[in-house]
Design a protein around this nucleic acid. Structure first.
Lengths: 138, 138
DNA sequence: GATAACCCCGTATCTCAGTACAGAGTCAAG
DNA sequence: CTTGACTCTGTACTGAGATACGGGGTTATC
């Protein structure tokens, strides 16, 4: 397998080249080996890692949370901590899925209503999504 | 039903008072009636609306997207547009759910592995989440 | 009717997640 | 062996989403 320069990795992963360097500084991607000249040589797996970061971001995770997820995936922290953190994240994810499903149901309902009538009078989306069971500002 | 001042609404909804004013400027919440003094008088439903905004944000929606969702919910745009937008959003949500479920499966797997061994050697999280079927930079 | 605790508006500042840029070095194609 | 496209580092700037602040008016309580 060939290695990639920073620019090649950026192109492959569909991000700006500066983003790569930013993620490295941030600690989201491990520092890759360098040539004598200082040029980085990224193994191609880094492409996947960038994709993962971007995906997780779109799901509402912050870079800080993502770095924790990646630390778990990389097997860095002690096993006990991994477990605890992973269990928390599973719950968090379940909550997210739950609300996304609600949102989806409401939208589908709106679509159905829209099929016949020409005006949606009362809005069900907010009520159905706003009961507060879980505080998000933990 | 009593109305709420800006500060009361902020407390009830669990956000900073400035956030309320910001959301109003942004157009996420309709301008409420005012007293002669200029004080805003929010109907209590605004609490739900703020909750909804915060929840949607945690799910990875931007304020712009949220304002569109709310416009749909409020029944503002023409019915055709509502339908189209709602259908797009349903797809978007399905994609999100899909990836969250993958993430969850991987974490659960890690937890299980963690139960016996004391070191996770190889990381499955990235591979399982990074295949690219959908571009996120539409 | 004073005083603390609120609200108003406008503007400035902050954090997060990048992006851009300048000045210098490196690589590879002709 | 030069030229153009790349890379490096460090620092500055940007945009989204808030938060803070200053100077002033309002309201409830004592």
């Amino acid at each position: 397998m060939k290695t990639l320069t920073t620019g090649q990795l950026a192109r492959e992963a569909g991000v700006n080249i500066e983003t790569i360097r930013y993620y490295e500084r941030y600690g989201l991607i491990p520092e890759p080996p360098r040539r004598a000249s200082g040029y980085r040589e990224f193994p191609p797996e880094y492409i996947e890692r960038i994709h993962f970061i971007k995906r997780a971001q779109a799901l509402g995770f912050t870079l800080k949370e993502i770095s924790e997820l990646l630390a778990v995936a990389d097997g860095n922290p002690a096993c006990k901590d991994i477990r605890k953190f992973a269990e928390e994240k599973v719950k968090d994810i379940e909550t997210r899925i739950h609300y996304l499903q609600k949102m989806k149901a409401v939208l589908k309902d709106l679509i159905k209503k829209c099929l016949g009538k020409r005006k949606i009078s009362e809005c069900p989306i907010i009520e159905s999504l706003s009961q507060k069971r879980n505080r998000h500002k933990e």
